[in-house]
Measured scan of single mutants.
Amino acid sequence: SDYEVNVNGIHHRFHNISEELIKFIEEALRRGEDLREIIKKVRELLG
């Protein structure tokens, strides 16, 4: 049904976003950045 496609589409989009965010955060932590600064950047990215 349309509803299922829609829900799956939304889930898929969020899954991709969270994968990208996790990579972004892991790389920043590897560079020794402060978690609070990383979260601030993530918030800015998400608008």
Rank of each mutant, 00 (worst) to 15 (best):
K40A: 13
Y3H: 03
L29H: 03
R31L: 11
G9Y: 00
R30Q: 09
H15M: 08
D2I: 06
E26G: 09
R31P: 01
N16F: 06
I25W: 01
K40H: 09
D2S: 05
I17T: 03
E27P: 01
S18P: 07
S18H: 05
V42N: 02
L46S: 12
E33G: 07
D2V: 05
G9F: 00
A28D: 06
R43H: 14
I39R: 03
H11G: 03
N16G: 13
F24S: 05
E26A: 12
Y3S: 01
R43A: 13
L21A: 10
L35H: 03
G32Q: 11
E26V: 14
F14C: 00
H11D: 05
I25P: 00
L45R: 07
S1E: 09
E4C: 06
E33C: 07
V5S: 01
S1Q: 12
I22S: 02
E37I: 13
S1K: 14
E19M: 08
H12E: 05
L29K: 04
A28G: 07
L45V: 09
N16I: 02
H15S: 12
L29I: 12
H15C: 04
I25K: 00
L46E: 08
F14V: 00
H11A: 10
D34T: 10
I10V: 10
F24E: 06
N16L: 05
L29V: 11
V42L: 07
V42T: 04
Y3P: 01
I38V: 12
R13W: 15
R43V: 08
A28S: 11
R13G: 09
D2G: 04
I25H: 00
K23P: 04
I38Q: 01
E4L: 05
I17Y: 01
E44C: 12
E20M: 08
D34C: 06
R31W: 07
L45D: 05
K40M: 14
D2F: 06
G32S: 11
R43T: 14
G47D: 10
L35C: 03
S1R: 15
S18Y: 03
L46T: 14
D2P: 02
L46H: 09
I17C: 02
E27I: 13
K40C: 02
L35Q: 02
H15I: 09
V42E: 01
V42K: 01
E33P: 04
R30W: 15
F24V: 08
K40V: 13
E20K: 08
R30D: 08
E19F: 15
E26Y: 10
V5N: 01
R36E: 07
D2H: 07
E4W: 03
S18M: 03
V7Q: 14
K23W: 11
I17E: 01
H11Q: 09
N6V: 12
R43Y: 15
E20H: 08
R43K: 08
N16R: 05
R31D: 06
F14T: 00
E33V: 13
N6Y: 06
H11W: 14
I39G: 02
Y3T: 01
E37G: 09
S18D: 06
E19T: 09
L45N: 07
E27C: 12
N8E: 06
F24P: 01
I22M: 06
I10A: 08
V42C: 02
R36W: 13
I25V: 07
S1I: 15
E20L: 08
I38F: 04
L45T: 07
I39S: 03
K41A: 12
I10G: 05
D2L: 03
N8C: 07
S18T: 09
R43L: 10
N6D: 08
R36V: 08
G47E: 11
F14E: 00
I39Y: 06
I10P: 01
L46F: 08
L21I: 09
I10H: 15
H12K: 02
K40E: 12
G9R: 01
R13K: 15
V5R: 01
I22P: 00
L29F: 10
E44R: 13
H12F: 09
L29Y: 06
H15A: 08
N8M: 03
N16H: 06
L35W: 05
E26K: 14
E26T: 14
E20F: 14
F14L: 01
R30T: 09
A28T: 06
F24H: 07
A28C: 05
G32T: 07
E19D: 11
E27M: 15
S18E: 03
E44V: 14
I25L: 04
L45P: 05
E37P: 06
R30E: 11
N6M: 06
V5M: 04
V5K: 01
V5L: 05
A28L: 14
E27K: 11
N16M: 08
I38P: 01
I10R: 09
R13L: 15
I17S: 02
H11V: 14
E27G: 12
F24D: 04
R36Y: 12
S18V: 03
H11T: 13
V7E: 04
R36F: 12
N6W: 05
I25D: 00
E27V: 12
E44I: 12
E33N: 11
H12I: 14
